[in-house]
């Protein structure tokens, strides 16, 4: 399937609904993501962002509708879905290198390909020097880089990121956001990036979906047609940021 911009549709979400008893958390959400697209999703706290991501990653079953990858119902055993969680998810008993390799091990990458990919991704995120240290010997930002590297390493069909840099300070955030853009451009993965930080969303994404309050639906869609690297004081950047902010004024 080809969408209007000329790119192939990779992910399609159809009527995604999630209810807990009588509480409707997600109400018939429909959208699609093009192959290699970087999509950001912003929404107010408590609007069900985490539930949304858990449904997308198939961690919890949906109450209705589904998510399709390349036309098939998404299945973690079949598709490469990666998830970068808000909190660092490093296994303390594995070195940095082994942590990054974990996803590829589960996916049963052949040894040689695994090692090759491992070295290149470690180099790409600047973890080569620390590859043999344990997670408790590296900083918090490095732990999150481990998770990001692990996620990109499996060539994901879909990479979900749940406010991955929410716990880091502003300077590191900028640095890691640039690194994320670099990874995405190099590896051409399809990314859904969830955040409540509007500036961050405008800084990284090609397109932004704005969610409404519960029952959550898509309130608006904003295209960000700015070249990378972006400048936060660029008037166009500021305009888009203001536009998104207006959409979610009732936060």
């Amino acid at each position: 399937m080809v969408v209007d911009s000329g790119r192939t549709t990779k992910i399609e979400v159809k009527d995604l609904t999630k209810r807990f008893g009588n509480l409707v958390v997600l109400d018939k959400i429909n959208f699609h993501v093009a192959e290699g697209e970087f999509l950001a999703i912003v929404g107010p706290t408590g609007c069900g962002k985490t539930t949304f991501l858990n449904c997308l990653s198939k961690l919890i079953p949906t109450s209705g509708g589904d998510i399709f990858i390349d036309g098939d119902v998404a299945n973690p055993r079949k598709h490469n879905i990666s998830f970068v969680f808000q909190e660092p998810t490093c296994m303390p008993w594995r070195t940095v290198r082994q942590n990054v390799a974990y996803g590829m091990e589960v996916k049963k990458f052949p040894r040689e390909k695994l090692n090759q990919k491992l070295e290149s991704i470690l180099k790409l995120v600047g973890l080569t020097d620390t590859a043999d240290l344990y997670p408790n010997q590296v900083s918090a930002s490095m732990m999150q880089r481990i998770a990001v590297a692990r996620a990109f390493a499996v060539n994901p069909d879909l990479l979900l990121m749940d406010e991955p840099y929410g716990q880091l300070d502003v300077k590191l955030r900028f640095y890691l956001e640039d690194e994320l853009i670099k990874l995405w451009k190099t590896l051409k993965s399809t990314v859904i990036f969830v955040t409540h930080n509007i500036e961050e969303a405008v800084y990284v994404a090609e397109r932004i979906l704005v969610l409404s309050n519960k029952p959550t639906g898509i309130k608006a869609e904003v295209q960000v047609d700015l070249p990378h690297p972006r400048s936060m004081i660029d008037p166009e950047f500021v305009t888009i940021r203001k536009q998104v902010t207006e959409l979610i004024r009732w936060w």
């Binding site: 990653s57 198939k58 961690l59 299945n75 973690p76 055993r77 079949k78 879905i81 990666s82 998830f83 969680f85 909190e87 998810t89 296994m91 303390p92 008993w93 594995r94 974990y102 996803g103 091990e105 589960v106 996916k107 998770a147 499996v154 979900l160």
Partner: peptide
């Protein structure tokens, strides 16, 4: 979260048990 992380990569129950639960 480690268990969830493993699940999103498609790890089986047995793989999660041996590679995540036992070491931790």
């Amino acid at each position: 979260t480690l268990i969830q992380m493993a699940r999103t990569y498609g790890a089986s129950d047995w793989q999660i048990f041996t590679k995540i639960c036992v070491p931790s």
